[in-house]
Design a protein around this nucleic acid. Structure first.
Lengths: 288, 288
DNA sequence: GTCTTCATGTGCGAAAATGCATGGATGGAT
DNA sequence: ATCCATCCATGCATTTTCGCACATGAAGAC
């Protein structure tokens, strides 16, 4: 039994269509179709029902997918360990962090790192998604969370507070009349007003909800309302000043996390060192 | 990373030479060389040192082999489970048992089974080696042992005794004069005289040792001495009769064992049924 | 010393796998 | 009702992979 055919079956079970599986495997979809046919011939058993809207796996294909998944895990473990054993400071390195963390705090780290190690091909994945470090979607992640997560190694970089920010216009209005109606712009995931608002400001309402933090910041910059955000963001972003509506409040820590297999790699360690020193030097930015 | 290349690395680490690995994989050895070169190119790292007497794996190759072994286990598990899920009574079925058990007791089972299920391509591995049922070297094994073994399912088929056998000539000589010198021919693995010999025969010596049971039987048939063997064998083999030198003694049971994944297969079950009924019908052959 | 055996590299032609383009079917949005 | 996106099957040209034959080098048997 060809192992690559097993992998192809897994991809097709996962994606449900030849095109999807082909894209995932980096081959033309006709190749997927042919490999499936070959596997069916080898096993003497149909693996998929050809439906008008895609391939539907039979029980046999599901069984294959189940075990091919184990094989895939072994492959990932292998790749992680090979990465972790690397000693040279060249070649690819993949880092992930949230868009805002990168844009507003980490750029000096990237600058310093690529200057120090020009042979490393650094790739940045600026996304809010939690990439799977076990599957090598990234080598190292900077994350805001309460703990590094299962089966990952982590280093606590920073403690941080959140506070409320708005345009200078709002700041002036609020200071002149604490009873004025204060508009909030909030993130979708937090449906209510932030907890811990000061009792000195009795009139508040949620004016807009956004599902995107960048858009939210834009709204605040445009004067649409007050926004709760991490201290470092409010201090960094142009056009916003802190307002006393929400007193500073401790928030989740910032960590650098990686898979223990990958952790010892020379490149990963080098990046960590630059990162840690930059964080130490800028501790004050994050707390009230 | 191509999974089949990982498998090729594993094979080469295991066998140490292109030719050996090629034979194990069922491909030409030049193909092995090329796949290794390709894998080295993909990983950007040498995997083997080319020595005059073969390929010597680097640490990276050993790491690959380690994980490819996990992948192989997953493959074996898959194949076992697919086999176990088979419901049709056709196609290949592999049985293993010792040479002597097959030649002297199991032939009626084979006859009956192939008559009842002519579409099954039955393959017999008549060997004394303990084949690895987890690796699908066989689907079912008839074994003489005290237990079915780790992670295998088993069914106790028969209890059996051993006793001493020799030519009629020897039998007569012994009965005429219990004090005559009695020669033994013994199996290599049991260096001493069998335990439990009757005190009625004081003069005994080991005359020959053999490393092969068939040769041993030939020696006994040629009158070279007395041989301890399972009851059913002594009774079945021409030219030998039981002699009272070694009173019948209980020996290890006969089991049919298989991997639990494969056990439910229709073919495996069908064979088991024929086997069990033949054993039940011939229970008496095995005990004194 | 020579011969045999077992090991690896290389070049060439056959075979297999792959990508691309075309054609056809289905279901949902407009 | 129509258009469009998405899916699949097939045929053809190209690329890649593979097996075979031949050459070579080292180590052990006689």
């Amino acid at each position: 039994m060809a192992w690559d055919d097993l992998r192809t079956v897994l991809a097709l079970v996962r994606h449900g269509s030849l095109a999807g599986a082909g894209a995932a495997l980096g081959v033309n979809y006709t190749t997927v179709a042919r490999r499936i046919r070959r596997a069916e011939g080898t096993l003497g058993e149909p693996l998929f029902e050809r439906l008008s809207d895609g391939y539907s796996p039979t029980q046999a294909a599901q069984l294959i997918a189940e075990h091919a998944q184990d094989m895939e895990q072994a492959e990932h473990a292998l790749m992680r360990r090979m990465k972790g054993a690397e000693t040279q400071l060249s070649g690819p390195l993949v880092i992930t962090a949230s868009q805002l963390l990168i844009a507003n705090f980490l750029t000096p780290v990237l600058d310093q790192f690529t200057s120090a190690y020009p042979a490393v091909e650094l790739r940045i994945l600026a996304t809010n998604e939690m990439l799977d470090l076990s599957r090598r979607e990234a080598d190292l992640a900077v994350r805001i969370s309460r703990s590094p997560g299962d089966e990952l190694t982590g280093l606590r970089l920073l403690s941080q507070d959140t506070a409320s920010f708005a345009t200078a216009d709002w700041a002036q209005r609020i200071s002149q009349d604490p009873n004025t109606m204060i508009d909030w712009v909030v993130y979708d995931a937090t449906p209510d007003l932030p907890k811990g608002v000061s009792p000195d400001y009795p009139n508040m309402q949620v004016r807009f909800r956004f599902d995107d933090m960048v858009a939210l910041i834009g709204a605040a910059q445009a004067g649409l309302g007050v926004l709760r955000m991490p201290m470092f963001l409010g201090r960094t972003i142009a056009g916003l000043v802190q307002v006393p509506v929400l007193p500073p409040r401790s928030y989740a820590d910032i960590w650098v996390v990686g898979h223990p297999d990958v952790w010892p790699s020379a490149k990963v360690r080098a990046f960590r060192e630059v990162l840690v020193s930059h964080c130490k030097a800028n501790k004050g930015l994050f707390v009230a």
